[in-house]
Design a protein around this nucleic acid. Structure first.
Lengths: 145, 145
DNA sequence: GTACGAGTTAAAGTGCACTTCAAGTCAAGC
DNA sequence: GCTTGACTTGAAGTGCACTTTAACTCGTAC
């Protein structure tokens, strides 16, 4: 059975060895077996790393990602806590997507619009209206990813 | 004509006064008029702040947001540079949205899935396949917002 | 046997987006 | 006149996600 060094995992997963060690220290990755003092990983580590990447890229913090991962493990003692986190994060991710969508529209429009000023820009006004609607509905102070 | 103090703008826009000063220092906001040494804003500042918020929430850095804003102003000398930035950012925002979408699916699915381990989880495997497809197509190292 | 490359550690450093602090000015209310 | 509250400044501090550094150990190749 093939086991991999940290360097091999770094190359194949595309994340730095220092980041892998950091994730291990932060308990995002399990402490792997050792061969003469060096970490040895099996293929399963890639699945874990993919989730970590996904979560971090979607704006989860390290602590949240840890919770998320523990919510997935065989033992889920504080199921309620995990569900609450998931629900909250689901909202945040949805918001993030809305913002990204608006920014995307703004960027796309800015190619074929020559508004003299921001205040006249159609796509910007649309985005602003959407933002205002969201704000009046109940909002958050969350900084994106 | 109503002019507003920094405190009023902070309250109405929902961003801290310290952040407004910071944005001014970073040239995201124009230097406003002064009344007895204190900043006086007109209503137009809210439009500007909305774009700044949108851009930052969509993962733009301060420097990129500055470029974005200058791309919108009456004078756009380095139009090519701006278009290049916009195109690049458009890609990044699209990627961000994909990641967010995957994470959303993962979160939603994790409510009614009781996978014994990550490796068995359908929604996770879907996400992983999507990720792998993207990776092989050409990728980035961008950290989200 | 020694140079090389890849790994190990704890601790310090980095970049970003702000916030907080310390020390001050100013106008209004008591 | 003195307090209160909102503002001013530059400088230092914060939290996060890593990276870099320094000093070290191994196994392999020459």
């Amino acid at each position: 059975m093939r086991t991999l060094s940290i360097g091999a995992v770094a190359r194949e997963s595309g994340i730095a060895a220092s980041a892998i060690r950091f994730y291990e220290k932060e308990s995002l990755l399990p402490v792997p077996a050792r061969l003469r003092g060096q970490r040895r990983y099996d293929e399963g580590v890639f699945a874990r790393i993919e989730i970590i990447k996904l979560a971090l890229e979607a704006g989860f913090t390290i602590a949240e990602t840890r919770s998320f991962l523990s919510g997935f493990s065989k033992e889920t003692p504080p199921a309620a806590r995990w569900r609450a986190l998931a629900a909250r994060k689901l909202e945040e991710v949805s918001e993030l997507m809305q913002h990204a969508q608006q920014m995307k529209a703004l960027l796309e429009n800015s190619f074929h619009c020559n508004c003299p000023s921001l205040a006249d820009c159609e796509s910007f006004l649309r985005a602003r209206r959407a933002g205002a609607a969201r704000r009046s509905a109940g909002s958050s102070k969350s900084r994106g990813p």
